[in-house]
Design a protein around this nucleic acid. Structure first.
Lengths: 340, 340
DNA sequence: CGGTTTTCCCGAAACGTTTCGGAAAACATA
DNA sequence: TATGTTTTCCGAAACGTTTCGGGAAAACCG
């Protein structure tokens, strides 16, 4: 491996000047800079990340820590995250590193160890809980991170998020405006922060639109087809008042809801209206539903670039204001809603 | 972060002696060693991987580089690899790091860069091709690696593999011994080394058992249900002589074969006998087939431990002889084969 | 021409660890 | 007493990089 010393010797320069030339410092002759960069390339020089990290505190590596949960193999979403972030950081000349925890391993010690060895410049946190302990932990440790979503009340850290409250409001309001009063909400798992936020939007829309607030119509769980199906069956069984419309946290849930309604002999939108939020994961297109599905849409794949931006910015020490981003979404009306 | 210096100061020892104590060197008083280790734990000391790597050449991190191919999201196998290796290396106090390449990015420059920055101690290579260029490249660069499988003729590197030649032989011979003469083989993609090796076993068994060697009965392709289905339809269409038995490279292929045969109105094993190799991936059990499937079985999940062993051993400089392992497999006879 | 600024460069220190080559002390051997 | 041996320790160098503080020479200014 070629080192700075090798280049310096070859060009009869000091190590200092070679380093400064390669890092585009100001006080180096333009012609020298070019010569240095040329020979660096010719000698196939790559800066030693360990040495660099040791002195400057930066290695150019960032990490993602994920738990190894049971269904991760089928989890299309997870691969999206890894592929998307990996690509983004590669494009910035950084290394993206995935660390998978054992199934029920506690997360904090893992971060502890990773921080202790000081190999990484920062972390991407996905799937934040309400009051996520990782955030406190990393902040106290003084490590850079960016959160996909927002957690807790004090939001003084870099994040990328979409307006989950407003999105749930819009979906629900779309239904109240068409006369629906009993609207079910198939939400995600109750411990996730975005789930709480969406619930607030749902409730606000019900209040604004004179919808009925019925606890049994708000359901939490994994947002997959199976839950969409079983939740639907449950909603339309028993004596409790039944909904005339269903808001789904994602399109996978909606797919299950469609199946459940079909099994029950109910039609969309004749008997029940359905709307959903669409992350635009591949292999499940809301427009290809029959009848096609009305959604709020914000492609998940638009998250990776701002996330990488924010983390890279945080590592460079940019001010917090530039490191908090909100993604937009669009409302797409299709054929899955009827007026009452 | 606590450093060696902090511990040394706290115990009024030299940095040298603290380092030696922590690394279990011989010339340190037993009582001192204990004292050092105790305070290290108390101060929550973790050795700085960068500093260590810089001087000793070891960071305790190993990597896996994977291409980001189209269907990786559905690829249960891929997650098995990541989860399995991650767990194994964690258990050895090492960090396992995943690097995902862009979809058609050439691999060698990625390794080049990863090696150049010198953050990793070694690599795990999966899915080797015949004469895989990565092997030559890493060997020339002097980087440790272990291969899941074997590639090329000169096998002078650490690997873990199963006896693919013999396994294909056994499956095929099981059929010739029961009177089958026209035996199809649904093999993997032609560029993989294990595919070539299995083909050799298949052909050897045909020769030994007086089977017919018919090129149109040996098919290559992705080993998924879709290919099993379409290959089966193809085998039983047209004028070419049809097989009486099918050997499948894995259970997913066999699932497709069963579906294809059912669609064609052919019964297993009445009309066609089927055998397969079983990697024991979750969610697809050969014993749950109807009729239950005769297989050679060697669980893929048994690979991760020897792979990690071999790579860790290579990094420690153990001799090559201890770093080459062969996994075993078992033959399980069930109800998918009939005698002619 | 004297003084000031600008341009370009360099030596040395530092980061946290491992390791080489001793070396003091205690103890045994002759 | 002199000589070796073992035990336990330490100073200093090294790994490859960045960066601080300076400094020589050239260019500019009045």
């Amino acid at each position: 491996m070629a080192t700075l010393k090798d280049i310096a010797r070859a060009l009869d320069l000091s190590i200092t000047q070679v380093s400064r030339a390669l890092n585009d410092h100001s006080d180096v002759n333009e012609e020298t800079r070019l010569r240095v960069k040329a020979t660096a390339r010719a000698m196939n020089y790559h800066p030693n990340a360990s040495a660099r990290k040791l002195v400057s505190g930066r290695s150019g590596m960032v990490g993602l820590v994920v738990p190894q949960y049971r269904n991760i193999g089928q989890d299309r979403l997870f691969m999206e995250v890894v592929a998307g972030l990996s690509t983004q950081f590669s494009g910035r000349g950084m290394q993206f590193v995935l660390h998978m925890m054992a199934e029920h391993e506690p997360a904090l010690p893992v971060y502890q160890k990773l921080i202790g060895t000081a190999m990484l410049d920062g972390f991407v946190l996905i799937d934040p809980m309400e009051q996520d302990p990782r955030i406190d932990f990393l902040r106290k440790a003084g490590i850079c991170f960016v959160v996909h979503g927002r957690s807790g009340k004090v939001i003084d850290y870099p994040y990328f998020d979409i307006e989950n409250e407003q999105l749930a409001y819009d979906l629900t309001a779309h239904l109240t405006q068409r006369g629906h009063r009993r609207i079910a909400f198939l939400n995600g798992r109750a411990d996730r922060s975005y789930v709480t936020v969406r619930e607030q939007g749902y409730l606000r829309a019900l209040r604004d639109g004179r919808g009925e607030v019925l606890p049994h119509l708000h359901l939490n769980g994994d947002m997959d087809e199976a839950h969409g199906l079983t939740d639907t069956i449950r909603l339309f069984s028993g004596d409790a008042p039944r909904p005339t419309a269903i808001v789904c946290g994602n399109v996978r849930l909606a797919r299950g809801v469609y199946q459940g309604l079909e099994a029950l002999g109910l039609s969309v939108p004749g008997d029940v209206s359905v709307v959903a939020h669409d992350d635009e994961l591949p292999a499940l297109r809301a427009s290809a539903f029959f009848p096609s599905l009305t959604v709020t849409k914000s492609p998940l794949r638009d998250s990776w670039e701002p996330l990488a931006d924010c983390l890279a910015g945080a590592i460079e020490g940019k001010p917090l204001g530039t490191l908090q981003r909100l993604g937009s979404y669009s409302f797409i009306e299709r054929n899955s809603v009827a007026s009452l």
